[in-house]
């Protein structure tokens, strides 16, 4: 397990390789469909300093309020491929070094990881209760009223958040290699 502190440098991001198991600690920001659309179409200035060097987390959490503070009670990853139209540009525009989600992403994102020095980090889909325990604090929330709980930008601090590098800055993608093997195995039984 490799420990990575967020925000991370370009060199750290470029040093990670497909298959590495990583524990993330530091600041992450959740963003899903409405958030990515906003980041590309409206380019909000306030987001850049929060996101620079940090990781975007594709997640729509279940959030409770305990003594006036927000607490994540369930916070696993959502399917990343929905952000494929936006992700590459978001990585470049906001200086994002990590994209955390599930299911992997496509060619445009893989290219952006190479161009800007970033990685795709696969969290365990459905492991919402465990991953919520890795969220130590909710720092702030943006666009909660406009987008609702799942789609808002939640700025969170995490500790030892477990992920696997499945796409890296050298252009390697575990998703592509598993797909190719599966395609071959399927052809054999048709």
């Amino acid at each position: 397990m490799i420990d990575i502190k967020l925000p991370m440098s370009e060199a750290e991001a470029r040093g990670l390789r497909m298959g590495d198991e990583v524990g993330l600690s530091g600041r992450m920001v959740t963003a899903r469909d409405a958030g990515h659309k906003l980041m590309v179409e409206k380019k909000p200035k306030w987001l850049r300093p929060i996101l620079e060097g940090s990781a975007i987390y594709h997640c729509g959490p279940v959030v409770a309020q305990v003594r006036g503070e927000y607490v994540f009670t369930a916070a696993g990853p959502t399917t990343s491929i929905r952000e494929e139209p936006y992700q590459g540009q978001v990585i470049g525009d906001y200086g994002v070094r990590g994209v955390v989600g599930k299911g992997g992403m496509g060619k445009k994102t893989l290219q952006a990881l190479q161009d800007h020095g970033a990685v795709y980090l696969h969290a365990i889909g459905g492991a919402a209760a465990l991953l919520a325990q890795c969220v130590t604090r909710v720092e702030s929330v943006y666009m909660l009223e406009e987008f609702g709980v799942p789609e808002a930008f939640w700025v969170i601090r995490v500790k030892d958040f477990p992920v696997v590098v499945t796409m890296d800055s050298t252009g390697a993608s575990l998703h592509d290699s598993v797909l190719a093997r599966s395609e071959e195995a399927l052809r054999k039984q048709l």
């Binding site: 279940v62 919402a128 919520a132 325990q133």
Partner: peptide, 28 residues
Amino acid sequence: SAARGAMRTILQNVAIARENSTPVCQDT
């Protein structure tokens, strides 16, 4: 393997959700 690691996380998650009465997955 990464697959075994994933299954371990899944099993731990199931136990935590049951213990705390919190959603197994945030997408209910």
